[in-house]
Design a protein around this nucleic acid. Structure first.
Lengths: 204, 204
DNA sequence: GTCTATATTGTGATAGAC
DNA sequence: GTCTATCACAATATAGAC
């Protein structure tokens, strides 16, 4: 769908998303959003009462639209290694398509934890089932002993961190070569699960 | 040194650091910084010409003060596994003491990549030596094959991410138990290097 | 160096015509 | 629904007394 075919509300949301993501809540200017949307400030207030309300709308969409689908994966009845492979590769792919999301979410999370926590509560992320699955494998002795919380944090870290730190990584590791970095990220859909599974595998 | 013994400039820097870290550049108010420092707004402009200049001063100190020491470790002539153990445990310890730094740096990195990149250039981070060491071990066949860039990114990710995502992790994994989270972070000084080394070790 | 008071500019928000 | 014009206030920055 072309930009021109969107109705005004959609144009506003699209523009607001771009500006909020780039500048954060305080950094963004309503004027800038209006310009980006090709309308004037007054209309922003007509559709959304205030800047805060507009932000909430944008954030909710950006955050909630992509997390539930992938996180439901953790609950499903799939062998552990397979689950890790699916989760990490899909997560990295999603962030590759929406590379601005992690930084955006993490920043607002630190700026206003309560707001974000509330939002997450409505989505309802429950990692307990995954953690239990890990515990069982450890007890059975089929994988190396590990705290399931460490495993889940490490998984998230390796999937998300490269996107948050992208500018710095591009610079000190990839000599500003954007393409090489993109390739590297794509490769990580395979190397990350491999790295994790290598760590969990028993020496035989 | 007690807070009262600091001279005005130091008091300002300390206060500004606290507020900027908490609120970000745009979120921070000069009035708030002045209150925190126990002085008035005018003095802020007397010592630092503008808000931007004040921010630069704070950021440079916060960032540059802790990175060089730890990163020099990567260059030293130490066995790989030992180096990984030292690097990760020290890194996590530093961030434990300065848990606000990662979020602060990463946000400003995304807001103004150029500014931060310039700063890093002056500090001069060079991971080449570490990467070469990894490559050599891979060639010798003493560790699992791995792209050294993946290893370094994974190391950084596992050290830094938990601090950036702290509010969300506390909530969904630790049921808001601050103490349990602090303990978890402390444990990671051991579990993270172990996780990495497990992944690199050859099955024997 | 430090203060109070004030200037100046920004920006979110609203009123009212069309 | 969309616009122009304007308000109200907040925030950075400066002037000038002490």
């Amino acid at each position: 769908m072309a930009k021109e075919d969107l109705n005004t509300e959609q144009k506003i949301l699209l523009a607001a998303k771009k500006i909020f993501v780039e500048k954060g809540l305080e950094g963004a200017r309503m004027q800038e959003i209006a310009d980006e949307a090709g309308i004037n400030k007054a209309l922003l207030h007509y559709y959304f009462r205030s800047k805060d309300k507009l932000f909430d709308g944008v954030f909710k969409e950006a955050f909630a639209s992509l997390l539930p689908s992938i996180l439901s994966l953790l609950k499903q009845d799939i062998p552990l290694f397979e689950k890790i492979r699916l989760f990490t590769s899909q997560y990295i792919e999603i962030f590759k398509e929406n590379h601005y999301i992690p930084g955006f979410v993490l920043h607002e999370l630190n700026r206003n934890p309560k707001r974000i926590i509330d939002l997450i509560s409505t989505v309802g992320i429950k990692p307990e089932i995954f953690m239990k699955q890990v515990e069982e494998e450890v007890e059975k002795g089929t994988i190396q002993p590990i705290d399931p919380r460490d495993l889940i944090v490490n998984m998230l870290a390796m999937c998300i961190f490269p996107f948050v730190a992208a500018p710095i990584l591009k610079n000190i590791i990839f000599n500003k070569d954007e393409e090489a970095f993109a390739l590297f990220i794509d490769e990580r859909k395979k190397t990350v699960p491999q790295f994790i599974i290598n760590s969990l595998k028993k020496n035989v």
